[in-house]
């Protein structure tokens, strides 16, 4: 029982990271109908920005704000440089452009900062607390807390605010939104900024656990992408549930079946969903008329 509780906590912690990145995938997919394969690199860039800001002598909270502002700027540049010029093309060139941008971001950071993995201290001085038989890593506690807050914020923002409703309208039908006077390009810009900040937030939060390295983004993004499919592509709640489920499944699979095949469990679940429920947990079945 003690073992299961410890695994559950860790699984939820790592799953929350997948969920945060998956959320970025979903928001951009809803707004543009393309998958942004650079979403993982947003996490990596933000973590490096945080390291640079801390090394520059900024207090941790100020470095955090600077890193997130930097990510907002990355979102603007990404939208204008990668999505906007291709917005009238089919989804394929845009997806390829995001893959290219992902490689560009990774190699730019490598060229600027070098290959050295970096250590980023966590937000708390205490690495964790022991509650009965379970050790609660303070960074994972923070990640879980932030994910819960974001779920509540997203619900409030998309359901209760005018801007959120405009973003939803844009994601559902761009032409109709445009006819209603909504600036579609502005809404897409806001979506890219929000997604970049979300990805960045995930990167900054997970950096004290996984270290800051060029590869950290791609490692997380692959799992987050799987989580997005499991949850139901395009569904915000699905991304969260998919991410958490994936984290828990791979942690328990590793502990009770096989550690070397830990990644395999995540992708086995993904394949099972693609075969038996391709629309994911929350996705709706789309049928074509004959």
């Amino acid at each position: 029982m003690d073992l299961a509780l410890q695994l559950l906590f860790t699984g939820i912690g790592i799953g929350a990271v997948y969920a945060l990145v998956a959320l970025g995938f979903v928001l951009i997919f809803r707004a543009t109908n393309v998958v942004n394969f650079a979403q993982g690199e947003f996490s990596m860039v933000a973590a490096y920005l945080m390291v640079v800001a801390v090394e520059a002598g900024l207090p941790y909270w100020a470095a955090f704000i600077v890193a997130l502002l930097g990510m907002a700027l990355v979102g603007v540049v990404f939208n204008l440089g990668v999505y906007y010029p291709l917005r009238h093309r089919t989804y394929l060139p845009v997806i390829i452009a995001t893959i290219g941008a992902s490689i560009l971001l990774a190699n730019s950071v490598l060229a600027i900062y070098g290959p050295q993995p970096q250590v980023l201290e966590g937000w708390f001085e205490t690495p964790g607390i022991q509650v009965g038989p379970v050790y609660l890593d303070s960074q994972y506690l923070l990640i879980i807390g932030v994910t819960i807050c974001l779920v509540i914020f997203n619900f409030w923002f998309f359901e209760k605010t005018l801007l959120g409703k405009k973003l939803q309208a844009t994601s559902q039908d761009k032409e109709m939104a445009s006819l209603l006077g909504i600036s579609v390009s502005t809404m897409i810009m806001i979506t890219f900024i929000y997604s970049a900040v979300l990805g960045g937030l995930a990167g900054i939060l997970v950096a004290p656990v996984l270290f800051v390295s060029i590869q950290m983004g791609s490692t997380i993004a692959l799992k987050a992408f799987a989580a997005t499919i499991i949850g139901g592509f395009g569904d915000v709640a699905g991304a969260i549930i998919g991410g958490l489920a994936l984290g828990v499944i791979e942690t328990f699979g590793a502990a009770y079946i096989s550690v070397p095949y830990k990644d395999g469990f995540a992708f086995l679940v993904l394949i099972a969903f693609l075969i038996f429920r391709p629309q994911g947990i929350f996705g709706e079945r789309v049928a074509e008329k004959a």
């Binding site: 695994l7 590869q215 590793a254 502990a255 070397p260 990644d263």
Partner: peptide, 13 residues
Amino acid sequence: YANQSQDFTPVVL
């Protein structure tokens, strides 16, 4: 264990 693991909790336990 597989290379590039993000979490070693199951291994440690």
